[in-house]
Design a binder for these strands. Structure first.
Length: 465
RNA sequence: UGCCCGGUAGCUCAGUGGUAGAGCAGGUGACUGUUAAUCACUUGGUCGAAGGUUCGAUCCCUUCCCGGGCAGCCA
């Protein structure tokens, strides 16, 4: 007999004569003549109440059906006599498949997130993490739906890369050399020419440069994959391994890029609201009371846009005392970004046209800037509570300007010969951005720590599981 | 990497210079169409580790380990 998921049983339109359920016991309440079991199989947040009558031959096993035990129930789906649920199952056959003794760490009470992180192999069985990872799955799907429906092609950019100077943080080295006895060259340095790839290689920090190759062939492309940064970051919004979505669009300028970013973010929020309503309600109740109101608010209005120069003016005139002074040419600090999105605009803000010196070499030089206020067509999307969720730019499509940019940033043209070739042959204006998938999840779920929206977080000093 | 906070029962925490307590969980019993059930009783601790100060340290000091927050780096 086929198994019925709890989700489908709860959505039943009428009683059912016989139904098979398999899942895990969340809690058991014993009465004199029968027991109540709350059965959860992860298919949805809610569990299904099972009634096991003491007259059943299987009732002897009921004491083994503790919180955490896996069980199988065959029985009748009937309208519940109790309040709190529409349907319940009256067991006819009840089997404990896998016991869980008193050492089972998940109790029928709230646990701290820190504790749950230490038991990352069991935390998906909790309400909160079940909900988080259902939303994560749904949004990953929505990413593909969004881009595929818009005619974007999905490109798999390499995980192992030889580009080591993209300016996006420290890289993890990939090597097959024996670390205790590496080959040396004439100068005594490690000879990577003898390594697996014949050169230094790293885990990717971004698929952007490669996706530009495909954008200048397939027009509209996106990547969605793991990204690695060997930064020693101890914050609630940084991980060493995270997933990033990077669309790259040919024949697109910075404004088209910002439009796309805004539409995409709103699409994901709308999709989660539509397909993960129960899970979002749970977050709204137990994680962040203002979550649903904030998501609605964000959906309803256009994101604010302001140039870096305007942002500096706003910050300067705010009358606020900044820990880090505000000056044109300096990077916006967290406190500045938070002020813009949380206090000044009180909504997501896209800041664009940043000073050239603080941005990457591949960003397009803005025409007509004063010589001492040179900017590039970069944009950051800032959201309340998290800060930067998207970073993007229009890419420099003009060969001479790109070369000049590389000189400006002290990069070696030779290492980027293929990247320059894209500007030599049929170059087109193009733009793209990177959305941190986990940061998006944090925004949608209200979960405040990035370690709690990724199944197995990799952070400095932590690679368990 | 810098600054700050924390580590006491399985979990969440309180506490004191004289070697410890609560709630929940676990166990036993009672009771109940219950629903984080309820009530009674009960088991349970090298107070993160190592040094030091002290007659005596879980408490004070130092170092280390671990967790967390903020900043920088960014997504």
């Amino acid at each position: 007999m086929p198994r019925t998921l709890v989700k489908d049983a709860l959505n039943a339109t009428g009683p059912m004569e016989v139904i098979l359920l398999q899942g895990w016991v969340r809690t058991r309440r014993d009465a004199k003549a029968f027991s109540f079991i709350e059965l959860n199989d992860g298919s949805c947040l809610k569990g299904l109440q099972v009634i096991v009558d003491a007259a059943l031959p299987d009732y002897a096993h009921i004491t083994k059906a503790n919180t955490g035990a896996s069980v199988e129930v065959r029985g009748q789906l009937v309208a519940s006599k109790g309040a709190g649920q529409k349907w319940e199952v009256v067991a006819e056959k009840f089997t404990v498949l896998g016991e869980a003794d008193a050492t089972y760490p998940l109790q029928k009470k709230g646990h701290s997130l820190e504790f749950l992180r230490e038991i990352a192999h069991l935390r998906p069985r909790s309400n909160l993490f079940g909900a988080v990872f259902r939303v994560r799955s749904r949004l990953a799907y929505a990413v593909h739906q969004y881009f595929q429906a818009k005619g974007f092609y999905y490109v798999h950019t390499p995980i192992i890369t030889a580009s080591d100077a993209e300016g996006a943080g420290n890289l993890f080295r990939v090597t097959a050399l024996d670390p205790s006895n590496p080959p040396k060259d004439a100068t005594g340095a490690v000879d990577y020419a003898q390594d697996f790839f014949g050169k230094k290689t790293f885990l990717t920090v971004s698929g952007q440069l490669e996706s530009e190759i495909f954008a200048t062939a397939l027009s509209n492309v996106y990547t969605f994959g793991p990204t690695f940064r060997a930064e020693n970051s101890h914050t609630s919004r940084h991980a060493a391994e995270f997933w990033m979505i990077e669309p790259e669009v040919a024949f697109c300028d910075l404004h088209g890029d910002m439009d796309l970013a805004e539409e995409f973010v709103k699409y994901l929020i709308r999709d989660a609201k539509e397909h993960c309503a129960a899970d979002l309600e749970f977050f709204s109740k137990f994680v962040d009371k203002e979550l649903l109101a904030r998501l609605d608010f964000v959906l309803e209005r256009p994101f604010q846009r302001c140039s870096y120069t305007e942002a500096v003016e706003i910050l300067t005139k705010s009358g606020k005392r900044w820990e880090h002074p505000v000056a044109w040419g300096d990077n916006l600090q967290s406190e500045h970004e938070r002020f813009l999105t949380e206090e000044h605009f009180k909504c997501p803000v896209t800041v664009y046209n940043y000073p050239r010196a603080i941005k990457a070499f591949y960003m397009r030089l803005t025409d007509g800037d004063a010589p001492d206020r040179q900017t590039v067509a970069a944009m950051d999307l800032l959201v309340p509570g998290i800060g930067e969720i998207i970073g993007g730019s229009q890419r420099e499509e003009r060969l001479d300007q790109l070369k000049e940019g590389m000189t400006f940033h002290h990069l070696d043209e030779k290492a980027y010969w293929w990247y320059l070739d894209l500007r030599r042959y049929g170059s087109v204006p193009h733009a793209g951005f990177g959305l941190g998938f986990e940061r998006m999840l944090m925004f949608v779920t209200g979960v405040a720590n990035i370690r709690d929206v990724i199944p197995f977080a990799r952070t400095p000093g932590a690679a368990e599981f």
